[in-house]
Design a protein around this nucleic acid. Sequence first.
DNA 1: TCCTAACTCCGTATGCCGTACGGAAAAACG
DNA 2: CGTTTTTCCGTACGGCATACGGAGTTAGGA
Lengths: 260, 260
Amino acid sequence: MEIGDVDRTLALLWRRTLGTPQGSRGPRQRFTVDEVVRAAIEVADADGLPAFSMRKVADRLGLKLMSIYTYVPGRSELIGLMVDEVIGEDAFRPATGTLRQRLAAIARQAWDEVMRHPWLLQVEEYRPWIGPNGSAKYEWQLSAIDGAGFTDLEMDQVVTLLVGFAQNAARAAVAARRAAEQTQMTDAEWWEINAPVLERLMPPGAYPVSGRVGQVAGETYNALADPERSFQFGLERILDGLAFLLDRSLLDRSLLDRDG
Amino acid sequence: MEIGDVDRTLALLWRRTLGTPQGSRGPRQRFTVDEVVRAAIEVADADGLPAFSMRKVADRLGLKLMSIYTYVPGRSELIGLMVDEVIGEDAFRPATGTLRQRLAAIARQAWDEVMRHPWLLQVEEYRPWIGPNGSAKYEWQLSAIDGAGFTDLEMDQVVTLLVGFAQNAARAAVAARRAAEQTQMTDAEWWEINAPVLERLMPPGAYPVSGRVGQVAGETYNALADPERSFQFGLERILDGLAFLLDRSLLDRSLLDRDG
DNA sequence: TCCTAACTCCGTATGCCGTACGGAAAAACG
DNA sequence: CGTTTTTCCGTACGGCATACGGAGTTAGGA
């Protein structure tokens, strides 16, 4: 990654706060950066990130391939712009309600975001491009739990925990949706193909516990898994765990008061 | 996915329990399926899944590209074999200790597995290939918490929660490792490039809470994030939440006893 | 007014990828 | 010994990101 690219890409990310720069020489561009990013998002929504290509974005706009590179430096920078753009689809109204509700809202927001644009899960970038909407989201998340009794460090960890959990749960939900769409096969049909073969291959009685649990799970889910239910189950456990952390902190503090 | 492929791939997965089939006509294969799978794993370990290619596997074995297809039906089936193979690197000795320790062991096992073979996170397959080692792992996971007081359905959900959480935490750790390796840049250096630009772009005072929390987090982590610490923090919260679930179930049950 | 620098758009080329297809050689069976 | 089966491989196709250079267009400066 070149330093010049960082400058250019950050300027693209913050283009709305910067305003449009004046006075460039050549022919005017046929589109705006916004239009390019929007077209790119439509491609990714339809095809997923692996099948997302510069060619498809160009086609969608009626441009030829190489013209895209006059709008954005390259594929990964364009993806950075797409990410911040879809984050901005949320209004981030200050969270209200009890602490438990506000914690749940953080997780739910992350879930919704990913369900709207599943390709977000396929963006593997440890060092994020820092854009206006990503920054606003982090501020919103932290504000939702500010003053609840967590330390500053814990606040970051709580957000990481909730968002990570929600994204992971959504990952399963998205995969289930894709499997149904792409393979034109239900989980039941899939099982009907696999079960008889496995019955011949698996040593009988080798999996007593998973046999029992798998049976119950399969009948309850009516599928291989039930991501929405897993999300609810996990979220309740995590919220209970966070409540416990706060209670104990309060207890510790009152003990300190007594001792000090 | 053709039905014939399912048969063939499942037979490949369970090849050890099946034994080697006798009497095939043509020339003998220069390698075993095991050797092909092992070579493929080495490629994926080195390059990651996106850069993992049939050509590289062939090169590593001294075969020409198309010969690989006489061993395995295709890329995605080979990846299925690789997944079950690396799961088998674990011995899955029955978990011991307190329930809390056994729950932690499930998460820790998932974390270790992914840290050994990061490309596991890039395998997006909702319907898993069911192999001997995957089956053994699921049996081990459930056995570790069997009889602890969870319902059968809860047992599946608990495993899903722990494994999903651990994988997600490992995802961050792996990304951090890769970022350091690939960009030849520390988080501090990355920040030195971004910070001055952002200072010009960001509206001053727009992010009061994240400014405060980000400061503390950055100083504590000495990096953009601290995945190992996030893992510990989240795991403790989840274990607390699960303990709470069990306590409440026991309470409910004793109330029922009194009433009934 | 006119020249020139800067910019957009695009054609071409390079080196990757998975895999379909068909041919040559080798081994085992009848 | 011929036939069948199987391995190994060469070639080809359509996909990908992007480096490079050229043609045409526009705005600013002389």
